[in-house]
Structures are given as C-alpha cells and as structure tokens.
Write a protein that binds this DNA or RNA. Structure first.
Lengths: 229, 229
DNA sequence: CCAAAAGTGTTTCACGTACACCCATGC
DNA sequence: GCATGGGTGTACGTGAAACACTTTTGG
C-alpha cells in the first residue's frame, strides 16, 4: 500500500527534550537509536506523526513508547525545518520539551530504542541529527519559563522541601540564590503550602515538606498574575 | 506527475499573522481567499511549504506573494496540528507573526488572493479555518514579547517621536502609561537615541525624532541584558 | 491668543538584596 | 558532642509609580 499526492511532501516528526532533576543535577533523557540513520547513536525521543493524532499526541505517544514515561508536563518548543536536518529526506520536526519527576517514573528501553538513559545536561554524548540545537533551545526556554512561571514543581516530587526547590532554581538558572530571600519570595506567592509532613531518614534536622497549590495557581493565572523568582 | 510514500502524510503549511500600527490603532493584514475552501472569506496569509524551503522561507515567500510585503520582522509563533483544522485533509500549519512598518510598505492584492487589506485587530471579519485561534495566540505573544524585548520599533518608522512609541506600547499592552516615567525608562536603556531631527507639519510644538540603536541592542543582547518597559 | 502636544523633577513606597546566627536531628 | 542542613529578621538602596505645570509651535 502506498499514498500518492500531487505535490511532494515533507515528513513530519516530533522530538522531545526530556528534563529531570536528580540530586541537584539537571538531567536529560536520551535514547539510543536502533534504526538507521545514526543507528547506535544517542538522540532525542521522537518519531513520525500519524494522521490520526496531533503533534502533541504524537509526542506523548513517542515518549511512552520509547521511554515508558507517562503523564508528564509537555510544551511545544519550536518547529525545526532546515532542509538537510535529516540525511534521508526532507523532515520537519515539531520539538517539545518535557519535565519529569525522576523519582516517580521508572524508565525502560522499549521496542523502538535500544536503550533510554538519563545524562547530565552538561555531559552527554554527541547527539544525532540537529538534536543539539534543539536541546540548546530547550534549555533557553526552560530557563526563561522557570523565571516567569511556576514549572519547577513538575520536576520535584509532589512533596518537597524549600531547599530542594531552591537547588532546582539554582541548577537550572545557573546562579546562587539567597536562602532567606528565596523562601520569603516563594512563600509570599501563596502557591507553595505546608503539608504538615517532614523529611524522614535524613542525618540532620528534618525539613518541612511543602506542596504546590495548583488550583490556586490556575485561579491566579486567570486573574492575570505573574510568578517570578 | 505524483509523489508516493509508504505512509500517509499531512500537508504542511505556514500562516502569517501580520501586525501594523496606524494612527495609534493596532492593525491586522488579512487576505481574501480566491480558492476553496472558504473562497471569498478572509484569512491569514499563508500557503503550502515547498520541499526546497524552510518554513520561515515559505512564510516570507507567501507574505510577498499575497501581500507584497518584503523584509519584515518575522518570528515563529506555534505549530497548529488539530486533526480537523482544514476541511480538505490533514494539514499542519506552522504559524508566524510579522511586524510591518505600515508607512514604508505599499500593500497590494496579488495573484494568490482576491484582496489584501488592513483591519483593526478588534474589529475584523470572521476568519477562515482556525485562524482566529492563531491570531489570539499571536496577540498574546506580541504583548509578552513587547514587554521583554524591543520589538516595537519594527512597527514604527525609522524615526519616531517618544509619544508615538508610548502610544504603541499603550495600544498593544492595552494600558495607559505615564509620560514622564516612560520617557525616563526608554532613554535610560540607551537604545533610543536622538536623531537631531524634529517633526514637520504638525499643528503644535514639533517633537524630537528618535531612532532605535540596533547595533547597541545586539551588543547588549550578547552581554545578557533585558529590556522591559 | 488659543489649541495642542512637547517636555521636564521630585517624592513616596515597595521590593530586591545583602547579610549571620541559632536550632533540631542523627550518628 | 559534632556534623549537617533547617530555619529565621533587619537594614539599606534602588527602582517603580504617582503627580502638574511650563514651553513651543501653528493656525
């Protein structure tokens, strides 16, 4: 079976830049390709868009098929359309970035990839295609978005300490933040609330666990509000 | 002649939201379709992406073919991929937004459109396809971008008065700004410089004409800087 | 001389920033 | 008891916001 068109058509794919935080390091999930081109090399998760799904659905599907990740935060990043970005033929790719709670998710290599693994963002293997460009843009976007919208919570467990949150900001924004000022600002937003629980099994004073009040955030967003840290 | 593929493919198009400022009103350029579907209705400029051009090149080409506009500011907005956004078949569209100096550009309807015309953003005809969604997103993006990057100059003549610039901000952001505070902030950036010229043929005191120092802006951008108004 | 917009400083207040010590817990 | 991170308040300076009158020019 084949499909015929009057004019030639580019193939349409999606690619996902998958971010996670682990022990204070920003990580990137990559998959090892088991198909040509670039077989055996590391690349972003992604694949062809089917006719019965939006690009966002395709991104979620590929994420699950190639890495086992489900129900993650996903946003469109940019569409890459350079003429020679795929050696086979003309391929236009809609890139997404995803934020994953590493603690909640078990990662496995699946049918479509030889392997899937986390790498440190600033120490990962050379990437296939133009995927390094995509990662660079995703990092810029992540930094910018983190500054203006409360998306950091998507990378942390549901309950987290303020120090964990601060370290997340420090790692992503590549700065040091003042502890007291950070806590004050975060709490002032009213979006981060005490759960009453505390840390367990730590070799020092146990920290309070907080959670992100998503409902309040949705309400404030509707009323026009911005959350900067 | 026809083109065959193993799997079905979506058609790929670009659409352009074209903004202009005229006498203090924010305008939108629309084209009247001369082909089905939605023949005779108003829509965004746009069309199919060829295999030998990037989506950005396609957007620039369609802009020129359908409206005569050349050398305008153009940035990618978002890629729209809802399954039923085109009644003919599956069409994925990469949307761009463009900023045009209305004074510099003569607009004409061309071969690909029955007509091209400016409309007020908040009083334009009903749009074909999902183009209203695209316009809504472009407006949001325009507001947000204007707040953080000096793009307003792309809508004004090369030489402009500070009042013109302020009105542009007021129209796009839908707020009133304080004249003295606005002038102070704008001048403090050092990106807006006196040209030495003044307005002509105005029935009141002639204002100084300023211009945007693009070179200085590029330099500051490289050094990491943000321009908020 | 009148209409219309240009141009100009100061005060106030909120917020960001810098900064250091005691506390609780596990080992 | 000591090592480790948790948790807390204040002083200062900068920048945003509010605010009204004089100047210039053309008609």
């Amino acid at each position: 079976m084949s499909f015929e068109y009057e004019f030639p058509r580019a193939a349409l794919t999606v690619d996902c830049v998958i971010f996670g935080i682990d022990e204070g390091d920003l990580k990137l999930m990559l998959i090892q390709r088991n198909l040509e081109p670039f077989k055996g090399e590391w690349a972003l998760a992604g694949g062809f868009v089917r006719l019965d799904e939006t690009t966002e659905e395709a991104a979620l599907r590929e994420l699950e098929e190639e890495t086992g990740l489900k129900k993650v935060f996903l946003e469109q990043l940019y569409t890459f359309s350079a003429l020679n970005r795929d050696p086979r033929e003309r391929v236009v790719s809609v890139a997404y970035y995803a934020l994953v709670r590493m603690s909640d998710h078990q990662v496995f290599a699946s049918t479509d990839a030889d392997d899937a693994a986390w790498f440190e963002v600033d120490a990962h293997p050379k990437l296939a295609f133009d995927h390094q460009n995509i990662v660079d843009m995703a990092l810029d976007r992540l930094k910018n978005t983190l500054r203006y919208r409360p998306i950091g919570f998507e990378l942390l467990p549901k309950k987290f300490t303020l120090s964990e949150l601060q370290h997340l900001y420090e790692v992503i924004l590549e700065t040091k933040l003042d502890k007291r000022n950070f806590r004050r600002r975060v709490l002032k937003t009213g979006l981060v609330v005490e759960t009453g629980d505390v840390q367990k099994d730590v070799a020092h004073r146990a920290a309070q666990l907080f959670s992100f009040d998503k409902k309040r955030y949705e309400k404030l967003k509707r009323d026009g509000f911005n959350f900067e840290v």
